[in-house]
Design a protein around this nucleic acid. Structure first.
Length: 137
DNA sequence: GCATTGACGAAGG
DNA sequence: CCCTTCGCCAATG
């Protein structure tokens, strides 16, 4: 149950319509959407990262949810964002259901020599790629 | 304008 | 050790 924990809901829009997937080319107003996409695109093959790591790199580590939410627009973003390389901190392919086909995500991972077992990346910590660590911002 | 939800994460029981 | 709960930020109904 959700209970009425938060009834206030800040709902204060910090960013005015910055992300507009409908418009192509003139998306100058960068937002965490673009940041997430950019970071995810820089994930080397055979590697994977977690939403929390990406969020941490961007600075919104406290809200790893936003990363996942942003990935919802990833399938609209171009060039295509390798969202299959982004999983939760458990290494579980939680977002596989959002792909064109639920099997596409693990198939892509397997193609990159990433072992997937029971919807979870094997040796996730080994192939883990931390943008904040690798990119050294 | 308020309540609910979400491809998460960390902490508490 | 497994399950439940809170926190975050933005969007959508």
């Amino acid at each position: 149950m959700k209970k009425e924990v938060k009834k206030i809901t800040k709902s204060k829009k910090a960013n005015p319509k910055e992300e507009k997937p409908r418009i192509k080319g003139e998306a100058k107003a960068y937002s965490f959407f673009q940041d997430v996409f950019d970071v995810v695109r820089q994930i080397p093959k055979g590697r994977a990262t977690s939403y929390g790591a990406v969020a941490n790199y961007i600075g919104t580590k406290l809200s790893a949810r936003m990363v996942g939410w942003a990935m919802n627009s990833a399938h609209i973003a171009k060039p295509k964002v390798p969202a299959h390389r982004v999983v939760n901190r458990n290494g579980m392919l939680t977002g596989r259901h959002h792909f064109p086909t639920p099997t596409m995500m693990e198939e892509l991972l397997v193609k990159e020599k990433i072992k997937v077992k029971d919807n979870t990346i094997v040796d996730f910590e080994k192939i883990f790629w931390d943008p904040a660590q690798e990119l050294t911002l």
